[in-house]
Structure formats: structure tokens, C-alpha cells
């Protein structure tokens, strides 16, 4: 496959007796925005570190652009850009100096450095902050600078480990606009995140849970998976007051298979046998007379919850 950019086969990493990444296999095509999700400590950063050649895989292999990440580390260095989880700018240096440093580190100098520098500043709109110390930048601007730094050598793949952690919603949206811009320039993006709304924007997502890859694919395809939509069930969104009280009540109902709070409403997976009126009656009984019930398609979160439960139940059996 000429258009496969990242390929993992049974990628495994053990730290002593602890297996941080357990036989993970997936592939990412050129130009994809691959969202990598999973709870804390599930092994996301460890996968990225192996893909960047920073950690030696204990087992399995991975290639980027056809080059083995462990054996041909020098070859992949020019292909990849990496923005680590706790980026990792030089606080003492200004925005200008940080970019200059990374440019030189990748062997740029003179006119080539100047050209690339101007391009990146224009792309990230960092112009007004050039003389500011990196330590004095706000979160969103720091991440922009970090991205600019990891793009100096025009990599084909960009690994971003939680680029939007701890950033306000507006800056987060702007950062994603920037990511789409990179993507439209043909860069393959590999992004880890804890935000479902970000996952929805990815062309492909992977979900890792307890060191194992649970699922991987296009968001829409995942939402149509049979195990997410068990036959004879439907998903409902119930908007009402006192959501938590309501949730406790409906959970007890026969036919409600899953119920989670979702902002001002709750998402239910109910069997077709359960009439809508039964829900309303139960809610009225606990003092919620008004409820807006409508059928919905599963969200990515529903997908991950369903698949995780399935896997845990499978393991228990």
C-alpha cells in the first residue's frame, strides 16, 4: 500500500513486568487526521514515543513511510514532527529564538531558514509575540509556537500528544483550525486527546484501553457497528430538569441497558420493548413532570463505552 503512512504490527512495550502497550496493530493512511483516545495511563504517549523512535518496542514493529522506526530511526527523523505531552519549549528563549533554534537544529540556515521562519510565523500568526519569552506566553500561544517548532523541517507526519490539554475552548477551536490547515497541506496528523468533540473531527480514531487497542476506524463506521447498536435497541436523548435524579430513577427501569449524563440531558440505550411513556411515567414519579425525549444516533463516546463494556464482559466470561 503506497499511501500507508504509519503501520503498527503487534507493537508492544513492557516496563519491567508492566505491559504499557499490548500488541497494538493499526495503520494510518497518508493525509489522515488520526485521533488516538484512551483514559490516563492507557499507553497513548508510549505508542507515540515508540513511533518517534524514542523508545525501543519490546515486541512487534512499526513503520513510518515504509521505514522501520526502531532500525531506521535516522531515516524517520526527517519525516516526523513531534510535539510531546509536556512541551518542552526553552522558557528562557523568546518566540523568535525558539523557532531559530529548531530551524538550525534541523540544518536550516540563511535564506532557507528565513523563508521557512516567515512561513511558519504567517501560518501560526505568532507575529505580535516574536520578542516575548516562551515562559510568558499563554497556553494557546505556547502550543502554536510548539507546533511551529515541530514543523520547521516540513515533516510529512506530525505527532501531537495532547496538544489541547489545559487550553480554553476558544484557543482549542483555533488550534484545531490550524490542524485542519496542516492537513489540507498534506500532512498526516496523529493526535491524542481526551476530548470527544475533537475525536469527532478526526477522519479516523483509535481507542486504547488498558494497553490494548479496543477499536480503530472512521467515526461514522464505528457508530454503525452492531455491538454499538445491539439489535432490538434504540438510543434516546432525554432532556429534563434534575438530570441526576432522573438518571437514578430510569436506570432501575427494566429495558434501560445504559444511561449516562450528557450535559443537560441523559443518553439512554433502551430496548425497543420499552415504550417512551414508561420513561415519562417514571420521571414524573420522582418529580420531573416535563421531559423532552428524542431518538439519537450513537456518539463516539457511546461507541467507546459500549466497546469497552463488551470487552470487559468478554474478559470476565
Amino acid at each position: 500500500m503506497p499511501d500507508t503512512m504509519i503501520q503498527c504490527e503487534n507493537l508492544t512495550k513492557r516496563f519491567g513486568h508492566f505491559t504499557a502497550v499490548d500488541h497494538v496493530s493499526f495503520s494510518v493512511a497518508k493525509g489522515d487526521i488520526f485521533g488516538f483516545l484512551g483514559p490516563n495511563g492507557s499507553g497513548k504517549s508510549t505508542v507515540i514515543r515508540m513511533l518517534c523512535g524514542l523508545l525501543e518496542p519490546s515486541e512487534g514493529r512499526a513503520t513510518i513511510g515504509g521505514f522501520d522506526v526502531a532500525k531506521e530511526t535516522d531515516r524517520i527523523k526527517s519525516l516526523i514532527g513531534y510535539m510531546s505531552q509536556k512541551f518542552s519549549l526553552y522558557d528562557e528563549l523568546t518566540v523568535h529564538e525558539n523557532l531559530q533554534f529548531y530551524g538550525r537544529l534541523y540544518g536550516l540556515s540563511g535564506a532557507a531558514l528565513k523563508k521557512r521562519y516567515d512561513e511558519l510565523i504567517a501560518l501560526t500568526h505568532l507575529e505580535p509575540y516574536l520578542t516575548r519569552r516562551a515562559s510568558l506566553l499563554s497556553g494557546g500561544w505556547r502550543q502554536r509556537l510548539a507546533m511551529a517548532c515541530s514543523l520547521v523541517h516540513q515533516p510529512q507526519v506530525l505527532f501531537l500528544d495532547e496538544p489541547t490539554a489545559g487550553i480554553d475552548p476558544v484557543a482549542r477551536r483555533e488550534l484545531w483550525d490550524l490542524l485542519f490547515e496542516f492537513s489540507s497541506n498534506g500532512i498526516t496528523l496523529f493526535v491524542t486527546t481526551h476530548y470527544m468533540d475533537e475525536a469527532e473531527r478526526c477522519s479516523h480514531v483509535g481507542y486504547i484501553y488498558l494497553s490494548k487497542l479496543v477499536v480503530c476506524g472512521e467515526p461514522d463506521a464505528l457508530k454503525r457497528l452492531p455491538s454499538v447498536n445491539p439489535p432490538g435497541t434504540r438510543r434516546l436523548d432525554v432532556t429534563c430538569e434534575h438530570v441526576t435524579t432522573g438518571l437514578k430513577a430510569v436506570r432501575k427501569l427494566e429495558g434501560v441497558q445504559a444511561a449516562t449524563v450528557f450535559g443537560q440531558s441523559m443518553h439512554l440505550l433502551v430496548s425497543d420493548a420499552l415504550p417512551e411513556q414508561a420513561l415519562r411515567d417514571e420521571l414524573a414519579r420522582v418529580g420531573i413532570p416535563q421531559a423532552d425525549v428524542r431518538p439519537i444516533a450513537p456518539s463516539l463516546e457511546d461507541v467507546f463505552v459500549a466497546l469497552t463494556n463488551e470487552r470487559e464482559n468478554g474478559a470476565a466470561k
Binding site: 514515543r49 518517534c52 523512535g53 524514542l54 535516522d74 527523523k77 526527517s78 516526523i80 513531534y82 510531546s84 505531552q85 509536556k86 512541551f87 518542552s88 519549549l89 526553552y90 529548531y102 537544529l105 534541523y106 540544518g107 517548532c149 515541530s150
Partner: peptide, 13 residues
């Protein structure tokens, strides 16, 4: 400690 070392190691330095 700061994590900048990782950034250096992925470069061709």
C-alpha cells in the same frame, strides 16, 4: 526533566 530532551532526540542532532 523538562522534556526538551525528547524534542532534541527526535531531531537529526
Amino acid at each position: 526533566e523538562r522534556g526538551t530532551l525528547e524534542q532534541l532526540l527526535v531531531s537529526p542532532l
